[in-house]
């Protein structure tokens, strides 16, 4: 009996490993721990390679470049894309709607968009990174330099030499 249940437990363990349902701990730079499924964590190529290299799955992964607020939002994206199926038309539509709402919230808060973009870049979360860079590009499209500065809160710091070069480049373009 005892050996039987042991084998069953081992089999369940192996199955769990295979289906990627192990839990992984990510720690923000403030020391806050976030427990996520392996499928969710694997959305990040950085974490995926560390897991596949047999790294410190049990100890968890400290992320010194990401704060708790940003990590929570990034995990929200990873959970949606890692834990949910996207096979049927309906499932894919639900995911697309999630992305749309997700980026709309960030679009309204450019400081947060910056943090999420940096985190997506650091963690190599391709889908999220594509989403945020596209959002940045869409904000820039059709705007004057002054409007772009206002949208992102950028100070005008072009030197006279910069201005001269820009003028010159404009005549060549």
């Amino acid at each position: 009996m005892a050996t039987g249940s042991g084998a069953a437990a081992a089999a369940a363990d192996a199955e769990e490993k295979e289906s990627g349902s192990r839990m992984i701990t990510l720690t923000s730079n403030e020391g806050k721990a976030f427990v996520v499924t392996e499928a969710s964590a694997r959305q990040s190529a950085t974490i995926r390679s560390m897991v596949d290299d047999g790294g410190c799955v049990d100890k968890g992964f400290p992320l010194p470049n990401v704060d708790s607020k940003t990590l929570a939002r990034v995990i929200q994206y990873c959970d949606e894309h890692g834990n949910k199926e996207a096979h049927t038309v309906d499932e894919r539509a639900a995911l697309a709607k999630f992305d749309k709402d997700f980026i709309a919230e960030l679009d309204a808060d450019k400081a947060f968009l910056y943090d999420v973009t940096m985190a997506a870049n650091y963690l190599h979360i391709q889908g999220l990174f594509a989403l945020t860079t596209q959002c940045i590009a869409d904000t820039i499209k059709g705007k004057t330099p002054e409007e772009i500065r206002t949208a992102f809160g950028i100070e005008y710091d072009l030197t006279a030499q910069d201005e001269e070069e820009i003028k010159e480049e404009d005549t060549h373009a």
Partner: peptide, 8 residues
Amino acid sequence: ARFRAVCS
């Protein structure tokens, strides 16, 4: 071109 003229 406009992107270029935003900041240094």
